[in-house]
């Protein structure tokens, strides 16, 4: 009832409300402020605890460590903004990396019945492979109507299966030259992998912020039904984000294989949790429609600083796992809490 709930805090600049204005401004930006404050806090903490933490060399380390996760997290950001999830990112990355190695001539000592092709062909096939896996996700979710949580869980297994079939427990080492350079080389002092990650993040930011497609992603995540009633092709948008996610994973997988120097089963297992954590810790809403690449970037640094910093401060390595879990839990609590705060008091009736 309009009169009864016109008391909505945001709708009146009454003198009493003036004081709570600032509080409200903070509340509505909790999603963006909390991750940044966490980052500053962690940097301060580790700087105080260890002299080797706050150095240029270590910054370079951190950047390298978050690059592969970062590329995957970009795809996930699109997916989570649409209020979907992709649990297959690490698996698709692994599969793509292995497809790439499979089509590359390996050293004679490598015991894999592979199919050597020119480098460019191998890359094209690997990218196509990740595209296909994304397309299968898209089809299952939008046409069949399988919830993305389940669909991508199946894809996680399918990706692992592809890896297993291609390498059969062996390890491949060689990848095409370009990929090897991008994954392992550097432009002067800056590793290529960091540059690629930065470019991918920047491109994604531009797409999400300044293009029509980006707007559709936010609107579909904000209110799917309303988007459909506005004539937005919701299915196409969701299909697109699933494919984008798979392509990002594919790129991360190829560079990752080069970066680690090998392609093998279960190589990317940690990356699923890390990339989801980065997006969520950064403050992108799990309910869709809120957040973005800026959030993901901060989330990546929070995770990167945490992982790296814990190595600098002589801590029980088994405790580290627990600490990461607790940080993720705290981020989830803030995420859900921020969502509730932002649920603006509706001025109209329900």
């Amino acid at each position: 009832m309009s009169k009864e709930r016109a008391a909505a805090p945001a709708s009146e600049p009454a003198p009493a409300a003036r004081a709570s204005r600032r509080g409200q401004w903070l509340r509505l930006r909790l999603r963006n402020i909390a991750p940044f404050a966490t980052l500053l806090f962690l940097v301060a903490l580790f700087s105080a605890a260890s002299p080797s933490f706050l150095t240029l060399d270590n910054l370079a380390n951190i950047l390298q460590q978050i690059s592969v996760t970062g590329i995957m997290a970009v795809g996930l950001t699109f997916v989570i903004l649409c209020a979907e999830i992709d649990l297959g990112v690490a698996s698709v990355a692994n599969a793509t990396g292995i497809i790439l190695a499979y089509f590359t001539a390996q050293d004679a000592s490598v015991n894999i019945a592979n199919l050597p092709l020119p480098g460019l062909a191998a890359i094209v096939l690997a990218v196509f492979g990740s595209f296909c896996l994304g397309a299968v996700n898209a089809f299952g979710i939008t046409w069949i109507g399988i919830p993305s949580f389940i669909m991508t869980l199946a894809m996680l297994q399918i990706g692992a299966g592809i890896c297993a079939m291609l390498v059969r427990g062996q390890i491949a080492y060689a990848v095409p030259k370009v990929i090897a350079v991008l994954g392992n080389g550097g432009l002067g002092p800056v590793p290529w992998i960091v540059i690629v990650a930065a470019i991918v993040l920047a491109l994604a930011h531009i797409v999400l912020t300044y293009t029509r497609f980006g707007r559709y992603v936010y609107m579909v995540g904000g209110n799917r039904e309303a988007a459909e009633y506005s004539g937005v092709n919701v299915r196409a948008v969701i299909a697109a984000v699933m494919i984008i996610s798979a392509l990002c994973s594919g790129l991360a997988g190829m560079l990752g294989v080069a970066h680690f120097g090998s392609a093998q089963q279960d190589e990317f297992d940690n990356y699923l949790l890390d990339s989801i954590s980065a997006v969520v810790v950064g403050g992108t809403s799990l309910f869709g429609g809120q957040g973005g690449i800026g959030n993901t970037l901060v989330g990546l640094f929070v995770l990167g600083v945490l992982n790296n910093g814990l190595d600098h401060v002589n801590i029980d390595s088994f405790l580290k796992i627990l600490i990461r879990g607790l940080i993720l839990l705290a981020a989830l609590i803030i995420n859900v809490y921020a969502q509730r705060l932002k649920g603006l008091p509706e001025a109209g009736e329900s």
Binding site: R212, Y216, M219, G222, A226, S230, V232, G289, E346, G348
Partner: peptide
């Protein structure tokens, strides 16, 4: 139902442009 046609957290102008976006913008908003 009002809930199923509006993006409560988004500004007015985005709520109004959503249904004509493809006529306003090909790629860039």
């Amino acid at each position: 139902s009002r809930r199923s046609m509006l993006f409560a957290l988004e500004p007015l102008y985005k709520n109004m442009s959503i249904s004509v976006l493809d006529r306003l913008a090909r790629l860039w908003l």
